[in-house]
Amino acid sequence: MANPVEPDMVLARAATELRDAPQEPNWVDISSSIIAKVRNTTRRTWPIDSAFPPGSGAGSGDSLRISDHIVKTTLRRALAGVHGAQPTEIDLHLDDHACIGLFIAVIGVYGDDLQAAGDRLASIAIETVWELLGITLGREEVEIRVDDIEER
C-alpha cells in the first residue's frame, strides 16, 4: 500500500503550481469589467404608491410610485445619528403597493431615555414618509425596536 500524501505536501505543490502558472495579461481589464457588471446589476425593488405634490398638475389618471429601496434609504439617512441611534433594519408594512406602516430596528445608546429616543425616531420616520410618499402614518403604525445598546 502506498504512503498517504501529507496535507502540507499537497498545499506546497498547489502553491508552486499557482506561482509557476502563466499570468493572464489582461487580468486588470477583466477584473474591472467584472466589477463594473456587478455594480450595474439591478436590485429587485417593489413600487410603493405615492401622492403627487400639490400643484404638480398631475391628472387623476396619473400614478406615482417610488421603489421600496429609495424609501428605506431615505429613512435610513433621516434616522442616522438621532440620539446616537443607528438603524439596523427598516421594513415597510405594505398592503399591495400602499405603505401602511413601518418597522425600524436600531442600536441605542447606553444611558439614553430609549422611550423618548424611540418616539423621536418614529416622529422623524412619519415626517419622512409623509414628505416622500405623501401619506400620513400614525405613531401606532410605526414600530421601533431597540436591538442592541452601545456605549457612547
Rank of each mutant, 00 (worst) to 15 (best):
M1T: 07
A2I: 02
N3P: 02
N3T: 09
P4C: 01
E6C: 00
V10Y: 03
L11H: 05
A12Q: 06
A12H: 02
R13K: 07
A14R: 11
A15S: 08
A15Y: 00
L18G: 07
R19V: 07
Q23N: 12
Q23L: 15
W27L: 15
A36F: 07
V38Q: 12
N40Q: 12
T42R: 13
R43K: 10
T45A: 13
T45S: 14
W46S: 05
I48P: 00
D49P: 00
F52R: 05
S56F: 08
G57V: 08
A58N: 01
G59H: 01
G61D: 08
S63F: 03
L64S: 08
D68V: 08
I70S: 13
I70W: 00
V71Q: 07
V71P: 03
L75M: 03
R76C: 01
A80K: 08
G81I: 01
G81L: 02
H83T: 09
H83E: 14
G84S: 06
A85T: 14
Q86T: 15
T88A: 02
I90M: 03
D91V: 03
H93Y: 10
D96G: 01
H97D: 14
I100R: 15
A105I: 02
I107W: 00
Y110L: 12
L114Y: 04
Q115A: 13
Q115V: 14
A116S: 13
A116M: 08
R120N: 14
L121C: 11
A122G: 14
A122I: 06
S123D: 15
A125P: 09
E127S: 14
L132P: 02
L132T: 09
T136H: 08
G138V: 07
R139F: 06
E141R: 14
V142M: 10
I144R: 10
I144S: 12
R145N: 10
V146H: 05
I149E: 07
I149S: 03
